[in-house]
Design a binder for these strands. Sequence first.
DNA 1: CGTTGAACCTGTTTGC
DNA 2: TGCAAACAGGTTCAAC
Length: 329
Amino acid sequence: MPELPEVETVARGLRSAVLGRRILSVTLGKTDFIDDPVALEEHLPGRRISGVERYGKFMLVRLSAPDGEPRSRVEGPAPRDGESAPGALLVHLGMTGQVGAIAAAQPRKKHTHVCLLLDDGRELRYTDARRFGRIAYLMEPRLAEELTRFGADPLEVTPEEFAARIRMRRARIKALLLDQSVLRGVGNIYADESLWRAKIHPARLGASLTRKQAATLRRTLQEVLCKAIEMRGSSISDFVDAAGEPGEYQRRHRAYGREGQRCYRCKSHIRRAIVAGRSSYFCLQCQPAPRGCMPLPLPLPKKKNAPASKRTSTRRQKRARHAETKETD
DNA sequence: CGTTGAACCTGTTTGC
DNA sequence: TGCAAACAGGTTCAAC
């Protein structure tokens, strides 16, 4: 789940927690999700954390130039000391990645695979049970390259550019929203939430959106993302920020994860279907399906003896979620 | 160009 | 009660 708002929340937390700290040493656990583990061990010790930025769902932990070594002037324009320079740690949280700084003496949680000992006695730790995340140490030529494959920042994109990126495409709008080369940072939750608010069905083709709909979608997407950042992200299962605190935006969800519950606008029931290969939640009433995808089927067949008629009857509720969907506008 | 499905990985939920 | 299949979802890649 870490999408743009969650990553932004973590990045902010990290900024206030470890900015300016020097890395003394590196300890690694499993490394199959790290581009070049040896590079971490070789290049991080001695460097200071000079900045933490978010780029889509990535965090960029900027590192100051190594300062033990007298940087030779002849090698070209050396970056001003201390400022973002030659290298950065690219961190993607995947789905279960967590980062935070705590006293080095504290026992490490299970699945902690990267520990950076800092000069204040704490450790910056990366924990990721599923290891869907990614960590890479990249130096400037390659870093910039790496970032070129991403699309526009959803919070910065102009109405014109947004429309251009969506309305010329024949792919489904849901697929486009999730495509990091179209927009960087949107994931399943905020795609569904913005589509619900814009009253657009996820299976619509990008090219089928009117200018007005594209404009509306851009606006609802930005509203949803901004509000989510304000509320420190959505904690569906295990997201926590850099301080270990969960977010609150899950209380504002109107579509995501609400299958079978009533639509906040029209009181019909929220449905779920697989669109663009992902579970998608929407209100068929508010978000009319495009022609020819009427009964967009679910993941589906469990048994073949089920009396095919009672798909609307028994709906087991998740009471765990009940308390969370309450609202406080 | 687009879509689909598999694979990666493991904790949690669901089903029998 | 217990075990196993299903699920979850970000990203990439192969296949159609």
